[in-house]
Design a protein around this nucleic acid. Sequence first.
RNA 1: GGAGAAGUGGCAGAGUGGUCGAAUGCACUGGUCUUGAAAACCAGCGAGGGUCACACCUCCAGGGGUUCGAAUCCCUUCUUCUCCGCCA
Length: 423
Amino acid sequence: MLQIAAIREHKEKFAEALKKRNIDANPMLDKALSIDENRRNLQAKLDETLAESNRLSKQIGDLFKSGKTQEANELKEKTGSLKEASKVLSELLNNAVEALQQVLYTIPNIPQDSVPAGNSDTDNEVVSEHGDMPKLMDNALPHWELAKKFDIIDFELGNKITGAGFPVYKSKGARLQRALINYFLDKNTEAGYTEMQVPLLVNEASGFGTGQLPDKEGQMYHVGIDDLYLIPTSEVPITNIYRGDLLDLKDLPITMTGYTPCFRREAGSYGSDVRGLNRLHQFDKVEILRIEHPNKSDGALDAMVVHVKGILEELELPYRILRLCGGDLGFTSTLTYDFEVYSAAQEKWLEVSSVSNFKAFQANRLKLRFRNGENGTELAHTLNGSALALPRILASILENYQVENYINIPKALIPYCGFERID
RNA sequence: GGAGAAGUGGCAGAGUGGUCGAAUGCACUGGUCUUGAAAACCAGCGAGGGUCACACCUCCAGGGGUUCGAAUCCCUUCUUCUCCGCCA
């Protein structure tokens, strides 16, 4: 959520930047500003009446204490109209605050200068490509067939137990998955991220805090009886650890990592996008998160990109880095780099990480602030990224590392797997 | 799930109808002292709204109510603790 004070100051600049998202933000911004003006007027009026009634109450107290009951009772009569007025005003004020909130919820974050304009993922800017394309044998198989051939992932079993998009990992497939989780967590903690284990169900306040609600309500599984949501990413519970907190300057930066399964309804997805492991309703992901001083968040984003690169290079997977265009940029982000690995048998680039700087957008919703060491408090900046999402890494390992009768395990993972090949 | 108790500032902990945004201690910040540090002493020290700045308003778990006036009384939700039950 943007800060209304910032909109007051930079309206033109914001509207200009939001064009990159292909939206004309002027109507929304104007609406927010006019509601805000009204809000402040109402606040001033309400304050006045409350001040007056506070004065009267104090007088009445004094009069009672000095035994002037008669006069006190006379004053009491006067308070009735003030009470009435403040009731009306505070109702109007609440409405205004609510209305402002509603408008602000609909305005996405401001893209940074470096974000290219564009409509869709085809307009994303390829920043760099790394690694060599694997040369597969002629009869190379896509990962869903490899999974069947070596009996390591069973999609039908998942259908039986739950439904499409909930695969069952078996034997070496399960072990490889667990190896990846441990490997990622180790890489992240070595880089200074503190490991967290968090709940997989979150309440509404947490969903609002990180911005999944109200924008993406339909994308989350909702447990109605207890009014809880299954997390679509560990970003939600991990970031919400600090919801409402006021940190000291010296607490920053805060860096965390966590492994969780993630649950996404993925309504509206279809075709080859959802084939095999490409898009699932439940998948594993290891996430890294940072809470940063506003001056440091740009550098932090770069550091996260370098970190993720390091992991992909150690896994020896060909990958490329994209800078998302305005049209593809997430609602809450100011700048996002996507990492895609090449999955050689299906000849597809698969997104395995998305690293974003949210600046103060989430923090404003979260009320996540720090004492800036000068005159007061300031919203912190939040960032997060995948390091990494499991299924597509798994898919590309299976496909890229396949040879005639077995699949090799990347060197870095052998100690974690306890075997060198899947056969 | 049942029965009790409790939720106050970063933490601990006073405060049961007006003088309480809230004692005190710790922590923190600045200063004195010291070669330096510690200790001691002095001063400051919650947040949000609002204002050029003041004034002023709001906040004592969340929501609602009683009252001229609520941290304090009532209702309700949530959370924590103790005991009982159930249980990985």
